[in-house]
Amino acid sequence: MSHDPAPAALPSGPVRLAGVGLDERRAIVVGASSGMGAALVRQLAGEGYRVAALARRKPELDALAAACAPACAATGGAVISAVHDAANLAEVPALFERLVRELGGLDLFVYAAGVMPKIGKEQYDTALDREILAVNLDGAIAWGNECANYMRTRRRGTIVGISSIAGDRGRKGNPVYCTSKAALNTYLEALRNRLSESGVHVCTIKPGYVDTRMTQGLDKLFWLISAEEAARQILAAARNRVNTRYVPLRWQAVGTVLKLVPSFLFRRASI
């Protein structure tokens, strides 16, 4: 086993501070192949971040990395892509370790993976429900645990979870999707409280309608914003250390009203 010669006492000072100063732009985005995740990667790369982009679909990750290449060249950022199924919890610790090593640290983590399969009116499908929970919730917890322990020991860092306004109520249209997002909200809140003494911030994002693959084919969409605009607002909320942010903000009013609607009325609504 060979090692570099021990640094002498004096020069080691500034060298060992590396990572504390300017070099604080390293991020991981899980669920990066499309929608808000991809938009976040593009924006972070444009700001000079070194970003690890994770998703199941390799071709789309490659296309994303290629699309970010000019911005990276201009800003000094980088996009590292890694194929990862958010439901594959077993590979998370080793993948986390590898990516944080490659990035040289981690300052921002975004969990943007989520699925919302269309559920038929009379469909009760446990296997499908478990899939939704695996991606929307289990993956967030597996990554959240790694990030929490790492950021806690560094006493800094930001964890962002992309949840949904759908977590505010149990809707008849997609019960387990709502369940997964409600659980995610509670998990993120607990993590935020748990890490508050460690200087680590956890930000819950509740997007309304965003123009992504998930909302394609849905009717009656309103206040639709682009994924780029959503990503901009998400990063602003994370930087301002906001606890919970509806994106765009006007959904906060909707969320507040929806929470007040009594059950006997809510069940008649078509949502």
Partner: peptide, 10 residues
Amino acid sequence: RPERSYERVE
């Protein structure tokens, strides 16, 4: 505490 973790050691 985890059996193996990647974290800051200072």
